[in-house]
Structure formats: C-alpha cells, structure tokens
Amino acid sequence: MRISNSGFTNSVKRTLATQADRIGTLYGQLSSGKRLQQPADDPAATARVLRAHATLNELAARQTVARQGQQLIGATDAALGDLASTLSQAKNLCLQTNTSTLGAAERGALAAQVRSLSASLVTTGNTEVQGQYLFGGSQISTPPLREDDTANLPVLYCGDHQQLRYQVGADTKLPVGLTGAAVFNYPDATGTRPVPGVDADAFSLLSDLADAIEAGDTQGLEQYGEDLGQLHAHAVDLRGQVGVIAQRWERVQERADSTAALLNQLLADDESVDVTAAIVDLSNLETAYQAALGLTARMLELPGLFDLT
C-alpha cells in the first residue's frame, strides 16, 4: 500500500492517543481502586452496586435499631428477673408468717420487709435505659409507676397499654419491651387483668400482704400467698416470652451481619478493580506505548530521498 507522509503522521498520532487513553483509564482505576468510575463503565453493574450500597446502609441502620432493641429487651429480662425474685421472696415471707407463731414485733418487722420489697419493685418498674422508661408502654419519657398515698392504690400505673415495637425493614415490627400493666397485673382499658385469677396489681397485693402480716390475718395470708404464686408464675412466663423476643432480635442482628458480609463480597466483585490484572495490563500498555514512541521517533528520523540528493 502506498504510504503518504500525512497518512503516516495521522496514523501515528491516533495510535499514540489511543494507547495514552487506555493507560489513563487503567491509571484511574488503579488510583481509585474502583473498576467502575462512571455509570457507562458498566450500567448493569452500576445498578447492582448502587442497590448493594443502599442495602448496606440500610443494614447499618437496622443494626443500630437491633442493638437498641436487644439492649431494651435485655434490660426487660433483667427487670423481670428482679420481679420474679421479689415475688418469690414475698411469697416466702407470707409462708413463713402463716406457718409460725410470731409476736407483733416480729410480724411488724416482716411487714416492713414486704413493704421494702414493694419499694424496690417500684424502682425496678421505673427502670430507665438510655433515657427511656422500660415499662410505660409508649410513655417512654415519664416514670410509669408513681407511689401515691392519697390514691386508692399504693402505686399508680401512669403508662399506657401500647407495647413498644420497632420496625425493621418494610413490614416487620418487633417488640422491645412490655407494658407495666402487663408485668404488674394492672387492668387494661377493658378492665381485664393479665392474670385473671388475681384481682389486684402486684403493689396492692404486697401492700395487702404487709397489712395482713401485721394483723396476723391467716386467712388473708393464705389467699395472698396463692396470688403471689400466680403472679410469680406470670413473671416467669413473661421472661420466657421476652427470651423468645430476644432471640428474634439476635436473628435480626445476625441476618444483617451475614447479609452485609455477602453484599461486601458482591460489591468487591462488581466494584473493585483486580489490582494484579490491572497492573499487568498497565505494564504491558506502558511497554507498548514506549515502544511505539521509540519506533515513531526512529521512523521520523529516517532520511528521505530528499536528504540523499
């Protein structure tokens, strides 16, 4: 083929520009560590990468929620443990009083013990985690239990009956606690108590028990002992339920962790540059570019016929 001087120089310029462009692309990928620099590099992978990033961020938010959920449920479980233990102690005191002949002073001391247990139970019921009260239902800003001598009841429940739940994902809502009403046997809006056989809340029962101990009311003590037993069984039952909820939160956390790990792997495949391959390609291109430059320089230096005349 006939080679013209302008054709040769144009061809050389095009070849060198193409090689420099390829080197530039590889350099950009290596310096950023990302295979995808622009959506046009791989539109389908771009959509996948954006979805993966969105999901990873969503999972991070879910993990935050799950950690908070686990913390609240953990605190609820501990509080229920306290409740069960307190009720158990009160029941023991009740049995102890009922099965022995005690003097007034001794009964007074035992009644004081029961009242002390009731006071500590109020503290448990007003447990606060990260500024939120555990047992007020959705009334998380105010203490759910309030001691009030002027009221009919020794301890008033100021919370509501709405169990607090966090939403994880689009449509899954998991509880993060129990209402004080459910825990301490207060009646709901319809007047129904969680433990149907016991027509008193835990604090009224303890108060009545203390009064019965002081008065030596053996008939009453027997009834209160049975009621305390039912409340204790209810507390244990609630702990079981809370355990199941805790497991669900744990699964949410684990699933978020494993999904994030999987997505990171997929992202690495889609988004990250294969450094070894890119470096090999870059070396080859640089070698070819240098060779092309050298060859071009030599060809341009070659004498023409005009130089020899």
Binding site: T46, L50, Q167
Partner: peptide
Amino acid sequence: DLNGDGISEALGAFFDAIEEVQTAPA
C-alpha cells in the same frame, strides 16, 4: 452516585434516619 454522594445515597440515608429515629423518637 458511584462516588457515594448522589441521590441514591441521600434517599437511602433519609430512610435510614427514619429507621433509627424509632429508637429515640423524642
């Protein structure tokens, strides 16, 4: 969006913030 500062990231962050506000709504 591939640089992490596009609409996709911002839209996700909006929902993430809503998801997290549940834990401290006040």
